[in-house]
Design a protein around this nucleic acid. Structure first.
Length: 118
DNA sequence: ACTGTGACACTGG
DNA sequence: ACCAGTGCCACAG
């Protein structure tokens, strides 16, 4: 098997794997529950990669992006999308207390918090 | 290769 | 509760 062949090195690229793991984590958040960028990053095995979670969500379509909030349950998306996010969450029964949602009440707990990856 | 940017998080005033 | 400063990291130009 070719180890450093350019083609498959692509598929196994660290970055690609990270994206995949982040996407998977986001998909785990059930309807009516929410999580945070940081929590998703940790669940995916990449603590400290909160910003990358945002990047991935922007690139991948079909993700429940509205269930991901900033630390403390704050909305971190631009004003336009923020409106839709609130609307979607409200439709799922997630209520806002002013600018943020009641995290202790709505936060989804990831089952398998994997240890650090690389 | 270097610099700026951002859908983040945390601390301190 | 609000805002500024700092650390964080991949990506784009």
């Amino acid at each position: 098997m070719k180890r450093s062949s350019s083609v498959e090195a692509d598929a196994a690229s660290p970055a690609t794997q990270m994206h995949a793991r982040i996407v998977t984590a986001i998909r785990q958040i059930p309807r009516g529950k929410v999580s945070s960028y940081g929590a998703v990053a940790r669940a995916a095995g990449y603590p400290g990669y909160a910003r990358q979670v945002g990047q991935v969500m922007k690139r991948y379509a079909g993700l429940p992006w509205h269930r991901v909030l900033g630390a403390g349950g704050e909305i971190k998306v631009p004003p336009d999308d923020a409106i839709e996010q609130r609307m979607r969450l409200h439709a799922e029964g997630v209520a806002f207390r002013g600018r943020r949602v009641n995290m202790p009440l709505h936060e989804f707990k990831f089952p398998k918090v994997r240890s650090r990856l690389r």
